[in-house]
Computed example of a mutant assay.
Amino acid sequence: MAAPLVSVVVPLYNDRRTVDLCLRSVLEQTYRKLEVIVVDDASADDSAELAGRHPVTLVRAERNGGPGATRNLGVQNARGEIIFFLDADLTLHPEAVAQAVELFEENPEYGAVFGIPDKEPLFDDGPVCDYRILQYHYWRKSAEGLVSGGFYALGAVRRSAFLEAGWFNSALRQTEEIDHAERLAARFPLLLTSRVRGRLSDESRMRPLLRKAFVRGRLRVPFYLDRGRAMQGMETGGRAAASVLAALTLLTLPSVLVWPAAAPVPVLALLACVLADLGQYLFVARERGPAFLVFFTGCHLLVSTAVVAGLATGLAQWSFSGRFRRMYRTGVPA
């Protein structure tokens, strides 16, 4: 059986810091039957020019359309039987594409295989970045197996399966992945696997990380309420409870200053929060030691509280906005 052509689709938006590393990692893959399509989403920096210095097909969007529209444009220009999506702030391990092809050969029923980033960041960008990368890695590693959520920053999809599920909804800017993966998972098994690996650069400052957590939490509300459940894999009941307990910890902590007798409330809430996702904290303690674990826990309390605030805001918006309730109901045919 002839080896399939793999189209590596790289969405690009103001990624001048990482684009060379990203494309070099693609061009150094052990699997050689591939084409590389870089889609510039109207970048304001010179990242498209840097990408154009590599042997790739460079497609330029006329205006900024977001990740969904950019990935759609990449697929439209791709010829491969397998579409390998790779965000420009990621690099691939040399065997990543080969492993994805092997997994499809071993499991012809799979619609997609999604990879897991390393526990080390692409750059040494400080403790907030380390927190994010460790948390990102652990949650995905702990969910390894069949999932209903998609991680299109690092993952391969059969072209036929992608077209059957339909295009990314370009109206969605933060949650286009969960929407597309839900349609894909309704038709095909999706695998999350550490056989496909990469290294990620992520947020190094807390403020944009909290904003992202809040927005994604808010935009997930109509998705969850339409389906009556969370995504299979990372989003467990224990982690949902841990997020609520994290918010309770931070909300009740100031009361201790005016009423010291209330001290057991935030302490018990924090303890329950940690126990609800204990494996994560044990993993961080093994990797980085107790001092960093304290910092990690503080960061995670803040991020979890931002998620809960986003969900609460989303519930309020869902109650009075019909447009918000219907945001995931628009069909996106192939």
Rank of each mutant, 00 (worst) to 15 (best):
F162A: 07
V258S: 13
Y224A: 06
A186D: 15
S148P: 05
G233V: 03
L210E: 06
A263F: 11
G228A: 09
S201E: 07
R173Q: 14
G150K: 03
S255H: 09
A181F: 05
H180P: 00
F188D: 03
F168K: 12
R205P: 00
T252Y: 09
R216F: 01
V244G: 04
D202S: 15
V267I: 15
A276Y: 01
A161K: 05
Q174L: 11
R220M: 13
E144W: 01
R227E: 03
R218G: 01
A156W: 05
G237M: 06
L253Q: 08
S142Y: 01
D179L: 02
R288A: 14
G228V: 07
R220W: 04
A246E: 08
R159I: 04
L192F: 10
G228R: 09
V256L: 06
L172F: 01
S201M: 09
Q232I: 03
K141R: 15
D202I: 10
M234A: 04
E177G: 03
P266K: 09
S148I: 02
D202M: 07
L248G: 13
L154E: 07
Y281P: 04
S160V: 13
A185D: 04
L210P: 05
R183Q: 11
L282Q: 12
V274G: 02
E203L: 12
K212L: 11
S194T: 07
V256H: 06
S194Y: 00
D202H: 12
L184T: 04
V258R: 14
A240Q: 10
R227V: 02
Y152D: 06
L184S: 08
E164W: 00
R218P: 00
L268M: 13
E287R: 15
L275F: 11
F223R: 08
V147Q: 03
M234Q: 12
E287V: 12
P266S: 05
S142M: 05
H180S: 08
L248N: 00
D226L: 14
V258I: 13
A276F: 03
L271Q: 06
A153L: 06
D277V: 13
A262R: 12
L154P: 08
E177M: 11
A181T: 05
T249W: 06
G166P: 10
A272R: 14
D277M: 05
A269V: 10
Q174K: 11
L278E: 05
R218Q: 14
R239S: 06
V256N: 09
A262N: 03
R218T: 05
L268C: 07
A185H: 08
Y152I: 12
S160G: 06
S148C: 04
G233M: 03
L190G: 02
A181L: 07
E203N: 11
R211A: 14
